[in-house]
Amino acid sequence: MEIQGKEATNSDIDITEKYVFRLFISKKSPDSLYVVKNIQKFCNQYLHENYELEVVDIYEKPDLVIEEQIILTPLLIKKYPLPEERISGDLKNSQAILSQFHID
């Protein structure tokens, strides 16, 4: 099912729509690099090249932390396509991300 879904999605949005993500991490946390790797792996696997990922260290951009109402880290925000959606955690579980972001 997931393979079908992936293929369908890709053919639909491939040209017109790009996924835009913003990932908030804390560089103080030793796991943060691992999390970035997880999400990159996820994107490559399910979205191929069809995505943009911005990684933000919360200690570098504290204003953005307030603006985006960040409490938990790591936090992945899907900025586009709308609606904006969020998921927190180590992002190891691809299924959870797919279902939270309604990617099929």
Partner: peptide
């Protein structure tokens, strides 16, 4: 005075997390 807003559905979590975001906000 700061309002910490959590969406209606609460926070979706998968795997390990921390509350560093809160730390940053409190610090500010």
């Amino acid at each position: 005075l700061e309002n910490l807003y959590i969406g209606n559905e609460g926070i979706q979590v998968t795997g390990k997390y921390n509350i560093e975001g809160l730390f940053v906000r409190i610090e500010q």
